Amino acid sequence: MGEFAWTPPGPDSPPFDGLNPDHVYDLIQARNCERARYKYDLVGADRRQSQPVKWQLLNGLIGACFALTGQEDQWQTAIDSYNSIKGQPSGDCKYAAGFRSLKQLAEFRIKYPRGEVRIHKTPAGVAACPTRVDSVSTRTAKPGDVVSVRGTWPSEITVYLGTREVALTEESSDKACCQNAFAAFEIPADMTPGTVQITLKTATVDLDAGPLDITAS
């Protein structure tokens, strides 16, 4: 018997583009095999050619996902996909995490064609992509200006300027979580000039996005 951890959570990609490979990864990670296969097929062969290696990885993981529910023939899908992409240049964080899982499962089944596979839970705190702030659009702003932050975080965020909570703009409200997220907020009209820290608060961690100089309007 082989015992393995399933591919770790992303965190989730923004939900506004359900046909991107990162979102399909999220469905696979949640063991939502049917939905992942539906999205994969919906993308279509032509669009999958824009990122063929990543989509082939997802095809293999979807096969493994079904195989783990008892559809034994799907192990061959996982093995074929693995054989077609091994040795290919590594991709982003979700690709790397997914490839590690597919490699373990496929190589085990190649070595032990009738071997039983058991999946255990991913350890708490393990994620495919690191939590981080990638960029802030500006370090100087006045009341009424819109400032944006890009990065990856584990859950929905609340933005603080110093100790003051500020609302996300409508434009960014559906893009503010979680992988490759985009969060934008407007400097309040009555914000006092000075330097404040931008803090993104999630349910489990606070991210320091650095200082912002507020000038007079």
Rank of each mutant, 00 (worst) to 15 (best):
K86I: 15
L58S: 05
I187C: 10
D213N: 13
D41F: 04
D22P: 00
S172M: 02
R100H: 11
F185I: 10
Q197G: 02
K94T: 15
P8W: 12
K103T: 14
K39G: 13
A30Y: 06
M191F: 06
R164C: 00
P143L: 11
Y95V: 03
Q51S: 13
E34H: 00
V117P: 02
N83F: 13
V149S: 00
K39D: 15
D134L: 13
T152E: 01
V146S: 06
A96W: 05
L212M: 07
V24L: 12
L58V: 08
D22T: 10
Y25S: 01
D12C: 04
D17H: 06
P11S: 12
S90V: 10
L168W: 02
H120K: 10
S155T: 13
P89L: 12
A36W: 03
D134N: 13
T158P: 00
Q104G: 01
V149M: 04
A216I: 13
L61A: 05
A216Q: 09
P21C: 04
G70V: 00
Y82I: 00
R31N: 12
E3R: 08
N59F: 02
I119K: 07
G151Y: 03
V43L: 06
V53I: 13
R31C: 12
G63P: 06
V133A: 09
A30E: 09
L19R: 01
D17Y: 13
T195D: 08
F66W: 07
K103Q: 15
Y95K: 00
R118K: 13
D12H: 13
A189M: 05
L57Y: 02
A184K: 00
T69Y: 03
V24E: 14
Q179K: 09
M1A: 15
W6I: 04
G115H: 02
T158Y: 07
L19C: 12
V43Y: 05
Y95N: 03
P11A: 14
C65N: 06
Q49L: 11
W75P: 02
S137Y: 05
A64L: 06
A127V: 06
T192V: 11
E171R: 09
S217C: 03
T7P: 00
R48F: 11
Q197V: 07
H120M: 06
W75H: 05
D206F: 04
R48P: 07
Y112R: 08
K39I: 10
Q76S: 11
G194S: 09
D174S: 11
S148R: 04
T69R: 10
T140H: 06
G194N: 07
M191R: 05
D22N: 11
Y25D: 01
S135W: 10
R100C: 08
Q51L: 12
G10W: 15
G115K: 01
F16H: 14
V146K: 01
R109I: 05
D22Y: 12
H23T: 11
Q197R: 07
A45S: 15
S155Y: 04
G91A: 12
R139H: 14
T202R: 00
